[in-house]
Amino acid sequence: MNYAIFLGCKIPAMVPAYEDSTRAVLGKLKVGLQDLPFTCCGYPTRSLDLDASVVAAAHNLALAKQAGLAILTPCKCCFGQLRHAQRFLEEYPELAERVSAFLQHEGLPFPNGVKVDHLLTVLSKEVGLENIRSHVTAPRTGLKVAAHYGCHALRPSAVTGFDNPMAPTIFEDLVAVTGATPVIWPRRIDCCGEPVSASNPDLSERIARGKITSALESGSELLVTACPYCHMRFEELAKDMGLPLMLYPQLLGQALGIPDKALGL
């Protein structure tokens, strides 16, 4: 198993522990990772200029295509954006033509047929739950964990194909593999509030607060995320509200017996 790892912009700059723990966990599970000179996935540009956001994604997809690799990203927004770009390139042939010309000028191929996966789908479907379970040496037995899904991987399911958008199970299954007990909480598939954190901070905080309250009142002892944006949204607030927060590969890493330091803890 070999992937081009797509970290995006936020992980190296704001959540470096996510990169550390992802590499540590995937290394342990024998998933090969290769670094390519990726740039912005185009997600932040999508609001203003769809074409530019598609070309940004296509540029990255083309790099993966050139290297003959599938993409693995730990970021749900990058994941969604790369998938969306693939969709838009099919939907708008005229845009696809312009993008193709642009990429050709850069010496890159047209990026059709590149496989894009999120960290969680790779773990659950490619590595396999049983395989992971066989590596668990320090199960987190008894820990009640609320898994936060993250919108841009889950929806729109027709584009992302991540899991059943109404009743997903992939994240709870991955929590259960660590020996912890997944909590089914009311707001688990709802928005974290991050996308409006800059334009409407109050609204963003209310949404995030509602989520953390829901997790707490459902008896959760730990909130886990698998996206840097969601993680950043919760980071301070969860601490204030008394709910410990972790990135999923940190939880899994502990169960796999990887030392905390290597997980950025």
Binding site: S157, A158, N164, M166, A167, T169
Partner: peptide
């Protein structure tokens, strides 16, 4: 009702294609 049907279907092992 919609939510519960979705959960029940997932629990029964139905593979859903939602917006198709």
């Amino acid at each position: 009702l919609k939510h519960s049907f979705e959960v029940a279907a997932a629990a029964a092992g139905v593979f859903r294609r939602v917006q198709s």
